[in-house]
């Protein structure tokens, strides 16, 4: 008993481990939004390339919050595209088939590219649909 109570247990507060880097990311997102409004050109941030501490990531998530849209993509593993509380700011998390995160992005755009089907794919699906209609009739 006595030896167990000697082990110093320390409860970390929410602000422990914050480096201030996440704040910079937030500023960058605001910059990107203003550029998007001006030029209509989207941009993205690769979160994994930034030296963010685990606490920074949690803080950033809290700051960005959640919006109304969540899109799941099932392509070679699960991907989740979430709208943040800020319209036009998306968080994208790509996982492989073994559920490992392979990319983590913030994308500032009206609709992330990966969600939109490619034109050639739409052409292909039109042809497929046409031929299935022919078979039915």
């Amino acid at each position: 008993m006595s030896s167990i109570s000697q082990i110093p247990v320390q409860v970390l507060t929410a602000n422990d481990g914050l480096t201030g880097q996440a704040e910079a990311v937030l500023t960058e997102i605001a910059e990107m939004l203003s550029r998007f409004l001006e030029t209509g050109k989207g941009d993205s941030i690769d979160l994994r390339s930034l030296p963010l501490s685990p606490a920074d990531k949690i803080w950033l998530d809290e700051q960005l919050g959640r919006g109304e849209v969540e899109i799941g993509i099932d392509a070679g593993g699960r991907s989740v595209v979430t709208e943040t509380a800020y319209a036009g700011v998306w968080k994208i998390e790509h996982r492989d088939t073994e559920e490992r995160i392979v990319a983590e992005l913030i994308e500032v755009t009206a609709m992330p590219e990966i969600v939109q089907p490619h034109k050639t794919d739409i052409e292909k699906s039109y042809n497929t649909l046409q031929s299935s209609l022919k078979q039915i009739s």
Partner: peptide
């Protein structure tokens, strides 16, 4: 195509 785009996103990263 999405799978491939995804791979490329992680490769770029």
């Amino acid at each position: 195509r999405r799978t491939f785009l995804k791979y490329c996103a992680s490769l770029a990263s």
